[in-house]
């Protein structure tokens, strides 16, 4: 546990990547929307909240090239690196999910910042109860982090060639899937199913995907070299 703790310490020291940059991204997006909302006086529904989720994806990609060679050279085991990094990302996702809930509550309480700006409190996302909203935020953060992380792991293990092959494989798989869906006329069913899903239900579907991503990145990291 002490060794995993060292990996946590390693990430915690990088406050810039884990706290300052995401706050700046979300803050500036919010500020721009607030000014626009204030000047225009119209009720605005914005997707500015996406920025923080996208950043989590980017963080997932860059965390490996940033810290893996350093950690391995400084006598950290690969397993401990994976466990510590996962724990740190999940904890961060947890705190950020709570933070978004708080901001959403503040937004509602201040009557949408007095300007009708819907930045944190958005329809669909806030349909469920507070626990469901939290779980959606949390699982989305974790999913996006591991999505980035698996891309980083493939690059670490197989370099640019691996990433290229993976991209081709994904494109091919999507194409085949689309062809199958069209030829069997499944579009309507799929569309109906997705439309009926609540944000909370959707986020539960993230779980198996997160698990897959985590297991694959773990296997790749265990075999990665510096």
């Amino acid at each position: 546990m002490n060794r995993v703790n060292n990996v946590l310490k390693m990430h915690q020291r990088d406050k810039f990547a884990w706290m300052i940059i995401p706050s700046m991204i979300l803050g500036s997006s919010f500020l721009v929307n607030l000014i626009v909302g204030f000047l225009s006086g119209v009720e605005i529904y914005t997707g500015g909240l996406m920025s923080i989720f996208i950043y989590m994806f980017v963080l997932g990609i860059i965390v490996l090239p940033q810290t893996f060679p350093f950690a391995i050279s400084f006598s950290i085991r690969r397993t401990d690196y994976f466990l510590g990094t996962t724990l740190h990302a999940v904890t961060n996702g947890f705190l950020m999910a709570i933070g978004l809930l708080l901001l959403s509550a503040i937004e509602k309480a201040t009557n949408f910042w007095g300007t009708g700006l819907h930045f944190f409190h958005l329809p669909y996302l806030t349909d469920g109860n507070i626990v469901q909203q939290f779980i959606f935020n949390f699982l989305t953060f974790v999913l996006l982090f591991f999505w980035g992380f698996i891309i980083g792991s493939v690059f670490r293990k197989f370099r640019a060639v691996g990433l290229f092959v993976l991209t081709l494989a994904c494109l091919l798989a999507t194409t085949v899937l689309t062809v199958v869906i069209i030829s069997y006329d499944w579009w309507d069913n799929i569309a109906n199913w997705i439309v009926d899903l609540t944000a909370f239900e959707l986020s539960l579907w993230f779980l198996p995907v997160i698990l897959c991503y985590a297991v694959i990145s773990f296997v790749l990291i265990r075999r990665s070299t510096v």
Binding site: N6, M10, R13, T67
Partner: peptide
Amino acid sequence: CFIKESQKYPDNYTVKDVLELSSSL
């Protein structure tokens, strides 16, 4: 402890960060 010429450090790390972390490692 293996020190190499081309050692990479996280971009945001200061000298102090490296030394403090080393003290736990």
